[in-house]
Simulated scan of single mutants.
Amino acid sequence: MTANEDQEMELEALRSIYEGDECFKELGPAAFQYRVGEHGDPKAFLMDISWPESYPETAPTISMNAFFNNSISPAIKQNILDKLLEQVEANIGTSMTYTLFEYAKDNQEQLMEDHQPYVNNVTLIGNDSIAITDVSSSKKKDKKEQLTKSQKRKLADKTDNKGELPRGWNWVDVIKVLFVVLIECVLQFMTSIPKLFVNLLGSSFSFPYSGTYSIFQHAGYDNTKLNHLRHEAYSNTI
């Protein structure tokens, strides 16, 4: 008899034996589940058995990973699997699914003797969604914004030995801006009075009033700009 024929016969036997048994569930033609214990029993658990193609000549696959077993510690699950594997070794080569289910039923108290409620990080959301709580996420700290070396150097130049900015640290920049604005206003006023502007700068390309020229230089007006303004003002006087 081939393995497939053995499986077909065992499948028919399981359906006949567990017909009407709410604890038994056929997940597929070669996969089955059985609940050991009633609903509400703190020591109840689910076991899954599936057949490889070569079963029963090879061992079936036994699993305790059902969500129903979420409150059972990994150590208890492993102990149950170890006991069931002992039964598998003793029955290798024969149909054993019924034997394994019945062994678990008969030895439920012994298998779950050391069971204590186990808190898992997996929680149920709604009817059929599972969420896994990330415990490590609560330990994560917000990273502070890192300054570049140039930003740190600029900040150090502006601060004192206590790391504080000195009083009036930005006044120089404000004064520079006000000075440029003032010179612009003076230039606009002088160009509106051509004769006064020509007398101040001179009608030639030289600048007799070096003090006046120095002021315009600080405002950003070089020889080219001043010559242009002078010629424009001079032409207006003609």
Rank of each mutant, 00 (worst) to 15 (best):
F24M: 03
T212I: 04
T123I: 15
Q33I: 00
S192H: 07
M64S: 13
L111G: 00
H115Q: 14
T148W: 10
K154P: 03
L81K: 06
K83Y: 12
D173S: 06
A13H: 09
E145R: 11
S16T: 07
D142C: 14
F216Q: 01
A131G: 12
E89Y: 13
G163H: 05
A66C: 10
Y213Q: 06
E86L: 07
T61E: 08
E184V: 08
F179N: 10
L14D: 04
N223I: 08
R153V: 08
A59K: 02
Q7F: 02
F101G: 00
F24H: 02
C185S: 13
S16Q: 12
K43A: 04
E53C: 05
V88L: 04
E10W: 01
N127S: 09
F207E: 00
L229P: 04
T224W: 09
C23A: 12
L84Q: 02
L178Q: 14
Y103G: 04
S136W: 08
M96K: 06
Q78L: 12
Y209D: 10
N170W: 05
Y103V: 03
L27Q: 03
P52Q: 07
K162A: 09
R35E: 03
I130A: 08
H218Q: 09
A104Q: 03
F67D: 12
S203Q: 15
G28E: 10
A219P: 01
V174H: 07
P29M: 02
M1S: 09
K141E: 10
D222V: 03
E12V: 08
Y98I: 05
N161F: 13
N170S: 10
C185D: 15
D142H: 15
V135P: 01
D142Y: 11
F197W: 05
